[in-house]
Amino acid sequence: MADPVTRPPASDAPNLTRGALSLRRRIANRLALVLITLALVVAVVPLGLVVWSVLSRGGSVISWEFLTADIPNSFRRAGGGVGPAVIGTLIITGMAALMAIPLGVLGAIYLNEYGKQKPLARMIRMMADIMTGVPSIVMGLFIYSTWVLLFESRSGFAGALALACLMLPVIIRSTEEMLRLVPDELRQASLALGARKWRTTVTVVLPAAISGITSGVLLAIARAAGETAPIVFVVGITSATNWNLFEGENTALPAQIFRNASQVFEPAQERAWGSALTLIVIVLVFTIVARIIANRFAIKER
């Protein structure tokens, strides 16, 4: 007689099923990890190449004399620096930030804390979304037609207005999204203790969202600091330092990068790479300082 076929106990079937599912999940998890890592490499490699190119070609040009010397009048001439462009970038972008940051944060507070879904709030959101996608050259033309032609003068303040228009919608939308992430329980707890709504917003909501707000503000500043078209349209070009925002033409690092990079002369090319590295360092320094300030005033978890 043939021996009966031995079968696994019925109780082992669920264990085999669970084992197969576990193996399938591990394979899917490893595959997803590989794909995510590959996507990260694809994204980081171009960024690394850009940073390496700027560092290798601009690092040999950077010096204290380069950062403080006047811009040479001839593209062929070696030496000189971008001192007026550094100062122009700082004062123009700084003035734009002074105008755009308070307006943007206050506008976001109104949209999230007071306006909610009112018709005015919905219209402001729609206009902010539209302005976010408007090309920078359109902002430059707008300020040129409404400010430069009206006063018949290019100036650093006109450039600050153009950059502020570019920064404002980014700050409004990013700040509103960060305010939405603050739990309502924090607001309710503050109101339950007798605090008014404005005090709750200032002392509870804003500190809880300050890190995200700072990130949005830095993104807007970085975008504005690197814009070229508005600066060329409304600020003009000069090779001398101009501390007066309201009178006389000025210059900035993006404009100098554009002017020098479009030339075939080696000294001009070197100044373009040095200006690019200088602009990156300026944005990096402001990012670090802003992060330190944000961490100082953010609500700490205990």
Rank of each mutant, 00 (worst) to 15 (best):
A2T: 06
R7Q: 13
P8A: 07
P14A: 09
P14V: 15
N15A: 10
L16C: 09
L23C: 01
R24E: 01
R25Q: 10
I27Y: 08
N29F: 05
L35W: 07
L40H: 15
L40N: 09
V42C: 10
A43T: 12
A43R: 14
V45W: 10
G48S: 02
L49V: 08
W52P: 10
S53P: 05
S63M: 14
W64M: 02
E65D: 11
A69I: 05
P72W: 01
R77Y: 02
R77I: 05
G80F: 07
V82T: 10
P84G: 02
T89I: 15
L90Y: 08
I92R: 00
M95R: 06
L98H: 11
A100F: 00
I109C: 07
Y110G: 15
E113T: 03
E113C: 06
Y114V: 14
Q117G: 05
K118H: 15
P119F: 06
I124T: 09
I124E: 13
D129P: 02
M131N: 04
T132F: 01
P135I: 14
G140N: 01
F142K: 02
I143E: 05
Y144E: 00
T146N: 06
W147E: 03
V148G: 00
F151M: 09
E152P: 07
G156K: 05
L161E: 04
A162K: 14
A164F: 05
A164I: 03
L166D: 07
P169G: 04
V170D: 03
I172N: 15
R173T: 10
E176A: 03
M178Y: 07
M178F: 13
V182Q: 04
D184H: 14
L186A: 11
L186S: 08
A192I: 07
A195K: 08
T201P: 05
V202M: 13
T203F: 07
A208C: 07
I210S: 10
G216Q: 12
L219C: 14
I221V: 09
A222L: 01
A225F: 02
E227C: 04
T228S: 12
T228R: 11
P230Y: 00
V234A: 03
T241S: 00
N242I: 04
N244A: 01
F246Q: 13
N250F: 02
N250R: 04
A252I: 06
P254V: 14
P254S: 15
A255L: 03
Q256C: 00
R259H: 13
S262C: 02
Q263E: 05
Q263I: 01
E266R: 06
A268I: 08
Q269E: 12
Q269Y: 10
R271K: 04
R271E: 05
A272Y: 05
T278Q: 09
V283H: 00
L284H: 10
V285D: 14
V289W: 07
I293G: 13
I293Q: 14
F297D: 06
A298D: 04
A298M: 13
R302L: 11
